[in-house]
C-alpha cells in the first residue's frame, strides 16, 4: 500500500507551445496523490486537454515534466502508460464490435488478460450500461452509452492513476450521479484521479482539490477543506474575470 503523500500524478513546470506558436499550457504545477480526486475547471481552450495529453505522452512537453508514479512520461512512455487509465472527452470505439468485444479488446490492450465475460458484464452494469446493450454493435450507441463503455474499460484496466477528460459529458443525470458515486469508490480503492470538467457543482462535491485554469495557467487551486462554505461558482467567475482584468 502506497503512502498517501507520495504523488501519483505530478506536473512539474509543465509547458506546451504548439507548432503554430500558441502557448496552450504555461508552467503548470500540480500534484495528485494516491486516493485523491483532482478536478480541473476552466473555459474552453484553457489547456485542460493539453495537460492530460501530456500525461499520456500524446504530445511532447515544450518544457517541464509530467510524472506518473515517479516515471517521467516523455522519457518512458510505455512504462508510464501501464499505470494510467484514460477516458476521453468523447469515447470512440470500434463501431463493428459489440460493447463486450470493444471492452475485451481495449482491456487486453491495457494488459489485463485474466477477466471473464462475466467480469466485463458486471462492470458494464456498474457504470449503468443496461444488459441488453452488451452484445449490440457500437454503431447504434448514443454518446452517453459509449462514454459508459469507456469508463468501464478504464475501471477494468485497474491502473493506479486515472485521467478523465470531461468524463460526464453526454451522460444523463442519473448516470452522472452514479458516476460521482463511482469516483468515490475508486478513490477509496486508492486511485489517483485527475479529471477535467465543466461541472462546477459536481467538482465541488467530489474533488479533494479543485484547480481553475485559464489561458494555459492554473489560476486558482483550493482543497476541499478550503472550499467549505465557499460558493465555487462565484469563485470561478471571479477568478476568470480577475484574471481577465489582470491580462487587460
Amino acid at each position: 500500500m502506497e503512502s498517501k503523500n507520495q504523488p501519483m500524478l505530478q506536473a512539474i513546470d509543465l509547458s506546451k507551445r504548439y507548432e503554430d506558436g500558441h502557448l496552450a499550457l504555461d508552467n503548470l504545477n500540480l500534484t495528485v496523490e494516491t486516493g485523491q480526486v483532482y478536478a480541473m475547471l476552466g473555459g474552453n481552450g484553457a489547456g485542460k486537454t493539453t495537460a492530460i495529453n501530456l500525461f499520456l505522452n500524446f504530445i511532447e512537453p515544450t518544457t517541464g515534466q509530467a510524472v506518473v508514479d515517479g516515471i517521467v512520461t516523455h522519457e518512458e512512455p510505455l512504462k508510464a502508460k501501464e499505470r494510467i487509465a484514460y477516458v476521453s472527452e468523447n469515447v470512440m470505439l470500434y463501431p463493428n464490435f459489440t460493447a463486450l468485444q470493444n471492452v475485451d479488446f481495449f482491456v487486453k490492450l491495457g494488459g489485463k488478460t485474466k477477466y471473464t465475460k462475466e467480469d466485463y458484464r458486471k462492470v458494464l452494469l456498474r457504470v449503468g450500461l443496461q444488459e441488453e446493450a452488451h452484445d449490440r454493435r457500437l454503431k447504434g450507441f448514443s454518446k452517453g452509452m459509449r462514454q459508459k463503455c469507456g469508463i468501464a474499460i478504464a475501471i477494468l484496466k485497474d491502473a493506479k492513476a486515472i485521467l478523465l477528460d470531461e468524463p460526464t459529458s453526454g451522460l444523463d443525470p442519473k448516470a452522472a450521479f452514479e458516476f460521482i458515486h463511482l469516483l468515490n469508490t475508486l478513490r477509496e480503492e486508492g486511485k489517483a484521479i485527475l479529471m477535467s470538467t465543466h461541472d462546477i457543482f459536481r467538482a465541488k462535491e467530489v474533488a479533494d482539490i479543485v484547480g481553475i485554469m485559464n489561458l494555459g495557467k492554473l489560476v486558482m487551486q483550493r482543497t476541499k477543506d478550503e472550499l467549505v462554505g465557499e460558493d465555487l461558482e462565484k469563485l470561478y467567475v471571479e477568478f476568470m474575470a480577475g484574471y481577465m482584468d489582470e491580462v487587460a
Binding site: 499520456l56 500524446f58 512512455p77 510505455l78 512504462k79 502508460k81 501501464e82 494510467i84 487509465a85 484514460y86 476521453s88 468523447n90 469515447v91 470512440m92 470505439l93 470500434y94 463501431p95 481495449f106 490492450l109 491495457g110 494488459g111 469507456g150 474499460i153 484496466k157 485521467l163
Partner: peptide, 14 residues
C-alpha cells in the same frame, strides 16, 4: 478520425 487510435495508445502499446 474514429478516435480509437488515442484510446489504444493510452495503453502501453509499442
Amino acid at each position: 478520425e474514429r478516435g480509437t487510435l488515442r484510446l489504444s495508445f493510452a495503453n502501453s502499446v509499442p
